[in-house]
Write a protein that binds this DNA or RNA. Structure first.
Length: 575
RNA sequence: CGGGGUGUAGCGCAGUUUGGUAGCGCAUCUGGUUUGGGACCAGAGGGCCGCGGGUUCAAAUCCUGCCACCCCGACCA
């Protein structure tokens, strides 16, 4: 490709809307443009990268035995109503109606649609196991699209669904997908971790997330250096030590605590540390109010609370001040489990049961109880764990202190069990002629998100540093001065030679000064640059790797093709 | 959805306080010089100043309603 024919509008300045490196660089390198919030167009360079990531995913899925299909993005409401996810999925679903008012959505995921595809025609155990996948555009009306391709409302995803006879089969399929994902992200050159995840709206079995580690990531993962434990902060089980407690239960007593509403205030007021208090957090969950009681020195984990309540995220929010006043008869800051409005369900983190003689809100402005004790003074539904993990917490597996890091969730795998086959009645006849539910799994890779993740892990002050396997082109040939016949002719020759050798090469034939060409080449991130300049008359050119741009090597023109092929092979390309 | 902010040329911004010819840098076009790290000179094109109402002789500027976009918080591939 000649650069004069390539639509790659690069920008010198950073668009003000772009906050993180991948978004800024994708915009500046002329790879994407925003259409509306959370919706992007892919220009030629960006499209080539997207296709390459897609192809790596496709190859590894095919290698795993999964079969590619293509489903519509438009899905009828009826299928979603069968699993009751039409309501459960909530406002994130893009919904639309046809001319006769029939309801549809733009698919945010395809469990229902794939299950429907196989439910009438997979009838026998002989047809199982089966695994189908597609690489297709997904739609989610995110509350807050952000960070360019990382959180967009339209995105390219590979989604796969496995169908098995029983749990053992499902676990086997799950492992196969895990292995395939390891191969995919390894080929993409990613630094990633596989972490236990919370299944959320997808299912209720185990799930794992493949997280590309980087500073701007939106997921927090907790992991252990001493063993293989790793989980998202939503999922990670917390081990929370409760300090030595009083031996005897003391008498409950109401005390004045003027203007002492927060845990910090309480610590100052009583001179106790935060672990001597119990917080009572009020939430509105599907039109009712719930109270979550947790040790005062820890933070709640709303995902765990949602799971305990069995509701979806969009059905719960922190209670507003008005609601707090109504159920506690007090200003915000004095909520406690004693004397709360009787319709409020009280959930208690199990660690509270180990605490003795602690301080709680009295549901009366400027009053707290001291010496409160669970069981004697109040009760509630005890939940094992409602807390958010912290750096330094004991690893639930081995007890070593946990470490936390950020990352981008680029893939996930879910054990679905019969969550979808049951409501959709996807069954088969086993060897005994008995009808059985199909056991399912679902498996996602964020293809467009992976493009952004690769950039987050591979860039420098000058631009993108593409791994060759996903680079839009492998090589840029840069004649320094296109008016110089020697340079122009040698550059043209190298361009042809490289093309003939199967290398994806761009000839920067623009009438620009060298600085402009170098800046653009580094911004776009071609893995290899061959500059044809003053050495052209002697058949000498400059050979530079993007990942080591300061290191310039002068080589003979005859060596170029061999050197390029050698480098690209070393980076995992078949040439 | 709550809080904050911004909408002026393709990109980055000034101008709005105090109403009076719509500007600057980059990019683009023409001509010339230049050619190893985002050149220089001369000239040129490009604007529903987010949209609708209102006030005024006069609105980018004041009032008002709406919309879009961005950031922070809670959710996901």
């Amino acid at each position: 490709m000649r650069m004069t024919n390539l639509y790659m509008p690069t920008l010198r300045e950073v668009p003000s809307e772009a906050e993180i490196p991948s978004h800024q660089l994708l915009m500046r390198a002329g790879m994407i443009r925003k259409l509306v919030s959370g919706v992007y167009s892919y220009l030629p360079l960006g499209h080539r990268v997207l296709k390459k990531v897609e192809q790596i995913v496709r190859e590894e899925m095919d290698a795993s035995g999964s079969q590619e299909v293509l489903m519509s993005a438009i899905q009828p409401a009826e299928l979603w109503q069968e699993t009751s996810r039409w309501e459960d999925f909530g406002p994130e679903m893009f919904r639309l109606k046809d001319r006769s008012e029939r309801q549809f959505c733009l698919g945010p995921t395809h469990e229902e649609i794939f299950t429907d595809l196989i439910r009438y025609e997979v009838n026998s155990y002989k047809q199982l196991p089966m695994n189908l996948y597609q690489i297709q555009t997904k739609y989610r009306d995110e509350k807050r699209p952000r960070f360019g391709l990382i959180r967009s409302r339209e995105f390219l995803m590979k989604d796969a669904y496995s169908f098995d006879q029983d749990e053992a089969g499902m676990l086997n399929s799950y492992q196969e997908m895990w292995d395939a994902y390891d191969r995919i992200f390894t080929r993409l050159g990613m630094k990633y971790r596989v972490v236990e995840g919370d299944a959320g709206a997808m299912g209720n079995g185990d799930s794992h997330e493949f997280t590309a580690m980087c500073e701007v990531g939106e997921s927090n993962v907790a992991y252990c250096d001493a063993c293989d434990f790793a989980a998202t902060d939503e999922k990670a089980e917390t081990i929370v030590p409760i300090p030595q407690q009083d031996a005897e239960e003391k008498a409950l007593e109401k005390v004045d605590t003027p203007d002492v509403g927060t845990i910090e205030d309480l610590e100052k007021f009583f001179g106790f540390s935060a672990d001597r208090f119990m917080k009572t957090l009020l939430y509105i969950a599907k039109d009712r109010v719930v109270a979550a009681c947790i040790p005062g020195h820890r933070e709640i984990n709303e995902t765990k609370l949602l799971n305990a309540l069995g509701i979806a995220e969009h059905d719960m929010e922190m209670a507003d001040a008005e609601t707090v006043k109504r159920v506690t008869n007090a200003e915000v800051g004095f909520a406690g489990p004693i004397g709360l409005d009787k319709d409020v369900e009280v959930l208690v983190d199990s660690r509270v049961l180990k605490m003795k003689n602690f301080v709680i809100g009295a549901n009366e402005t400027d009053k707290h109880y001291i010496n409160a004790n669970y069981g004697r003074d109040f009760e509630g539904r005890v939940i094992d764990d409602l807390l958010t993990v912290r750096v330094g917490d004991a690893c639930p597996k081995c007890g070593a202190p946990l470490v936390m890091d950020r990352g981008i969730e680029v893939g996930n795998i879910f054990q679905l069990g019969t969550k979808y086959s049951k409501p959709l009645n996807a069954t088969y006849l086993d060897q005994n002629g008995k009808e059985q539910l199909i056991w399912m799994g679902s498996y996602g890779v964020g293809v467009s998100r992976s493009v952004a993740a690769v950039i987050e892990q591979n860039h420098d002050e000058f631009g993108i540093v593409w791994p060759a396997v996903v680079a839009p082109f492998h090589v840029v040939v840069t004649p320094i001065n296109v008016k110089n016949d020697d340079q122009r002719e040698l550059a043209e020759k190298l361009y042809e030679d490289l093309k003939n050798a199967g290398v994806e090469v761009v000839l920067d034939d623009r009438k620009e000064r060298p600085g402009v060409k170098f800046k653009d080449a580094e911004l776009i991130g071609f893995p290899i640059r061959v500059a044809v300049g003053r050495g052209a008359a002697e058949n000498k050119v400059e050979y530079v790797l993007r990942r080591d741009v300061k290191n310039k090597e002068e080589i003979a023109a005859e060596e170029v093709v061999a050197r390029v092929k050698e480098e690209l092979r070393a980076q995992g390309l078949n040439l």
